[in-house]
């Protein structure tokens, strides 16, 4: 099992991580961050494979992966 940690304050809401998560586990959050954008949010942590596709494509280096 893996854990995805998203730095929501650095997130600019481009949602490339949302698009590239092979299991579609990341979703736009319903709350806004301090930038005024809806950050990405890991919805279903338990199913994360730790493939790091989200982190690799993240332009803002907001994602850390623990496995």
């Amino acid at each position: 099992m893996a854990k995805v940690k998203i730095d929501i304050e650095k997130c600019k809401g481009c949602f490339l991580c949302v698009s590239f998560c092979p299991k579609r586990l990341i979703k736009p959050d319903s709350k806004l961050n301090r930038r005024g954008v809806r950050p990405a949010k890991m919805e279903i942590d338990s199913q994360c494979l730790g493939c790091a596709m989200c982190a690799v494509i993240c332009p803002d280096c907001c994602i850390e992966i623990y496995k």
């Binding site: 893996a2 854990k3 730790g50 790091a52 982190a55 690799v56 280096c61 994602i63 850390e64 992966i65 623990y66 496995k67």
Partner: peptide, 11 residues
Amino acid sequence: AQKIFSRPRSL
């Protein structure tokens, strides 16, 4: 858990 992806030192 081990960190497998994070911000590089040089960034």
